[in-house]
């Protein structure tokens, strides 16, 4: 009998202690919860430091996509109008975020680490047509040392079909 009453108090004490704790709810959207470093959110298309796009338009992300949500059209770079250091660049890059299942296969397939799934999880739309992210929405802005694309580049510098890269660090 006494044991049961004690048990009830133990339970109540947990409740009472929690009442004094800081609440776990946060005031979204004023406040935002940090996500884990390997969280898979909305995609980002990256650039090199000099501002050239990492994407070489190979469309392997599109091939890997189980939802067929990525559409890539490639075009050829020229030194007068260069987007990426490779032979080709993505002239069209579209992701239908309503179809995307955030599996990250595109990231895995990418040979130049051009596409990553970012930390942004705020993907809601007022209309379905807003859910299709085009290249300019996905592409990150050029960094402080870089110029935006297209760039005019000297001849004979970008001769490789796949840009030189370090081995992935992680």
């Amino acid at each position: 009998m006494i044991r049961e009453i004690l048990a009830a108090f133990t339970g109540l004490s947990t409740t009472l202690t929690s009442m004094l704790d800081k609440p776990v709810t946060i005031q979204y959207p004023e406040e935002k919860r940090p996500v884990r470093p390997r969280f898979r959110g909305r995609h980002i298309l990256h650039r090199y430091e000099n501002g050239l796009e990492k994407c070489i338009g190979c469309a392997l992300c599109a091939a890997a996509c189980p939802a067929d949500a990525i559409f890539v059209e490639a075009a050829e770079n020229t030194d007068a109008e260069r987007y990426s250091p490779g032979e080709r660049y993505a002239s069209t890059y579209q992701i239908n975020l309503l179809r995307c299942i955030y599996c990250g296969y595109c990231e895995d397939a990418c040979p130049t680490e051009a596409i990553t799934l970012g930390l942004s999880y705020e993907v809601s739309f007022a209309g379905r047509d807003k859910a299709v992210y085009t290249k300019d929405m996905l592409l990150e802005p050029a960094g402080p040392q870089g110029k935006s694309t297209p760039q005019q580049t000297p001849a004979g510098v970008y001769t490789r079909s796949v840009p030189v890269m370090e081995n992935p660090a992680d």
Partner: peptide, 9 residues
Amino acid sequence: SGRTSMHAN
């Protein structure tokens, strides 16, 4: 590939 987004435009 791209079936669900190629006609999105």
